[in-house]
Simulated assay, not measured.
Amino acid sequence: MNRKQLLLTLAATVTVMTMLACGAGSGDTSSSVSGGDGKSVEAAPEPTTAVGKIGQTITLNSEFLGDKTVVEVTVGGAKQHTKEPGAYGSKPEHGVFLVLDVTAVCKQGKYHANPFNFKFVAKDGTVTEQALAIGFKPELHGTDLAAGQKTAGKIVFDVSKAALTGGRIQIDGVGLDSNTPAAYWAL
Rank of each mutant, 00 (worst) to 15 (best):
G36T: 11
L8I: 03
A21N: 14
L65C: 04
A21V: 02
D28Y: 11
L98F: 02
T74Y: 09
G125A: 00
T74M: 02
T126V: 00
A44T: 02
V105L: 13
L8R: 12
A162Q: 07
D101S: 13
D101P: 07
A163Q: 11
G173E: 10
C22R: 14
Q5M: 12
L10F: 03
V75H: 08
G166N: 04
L176V: 05
G173Q: 10
V159M: 03
Q149M: 12
I134A: 13
K110S: 14
A113E: 12
P181V: 03
K137L: 15
N61Q: 09
D37R: 03
A133Q: 06
S31G: 13
N179P: 01
V16P: 02
G125W: 04
L140W: 13
N179E: 15
T13I: 14
G77K: 14
Y88E: 05
K39W: 03
A182V: 04
C106M: 10
V99G: 08
Y111A: 05
H141Q: 15
V105I: 11
L20K: 06
L145T: 07
L100C: 06
A113N: 04
L98R: 01
R168M: 10
F136R: 12
K39N: 08
A163C: 01
P115K: 05
A133C: 00
I171K: 13
A122Y: 04
P138Q: 15
K79S: 06
F64V: 06
Y88G: 09
S90F: 02
I54S: 06
K119F: 08
T18L: 15
A87D: 06
K123Q: 07
T82Y: 00
F136S: 08
D177P: 00
G55W: 12
M1W: 05
G76Y: 08
G66Q: 02
K91E: 00
L164C: 07
A113M: 10
F120P: 03
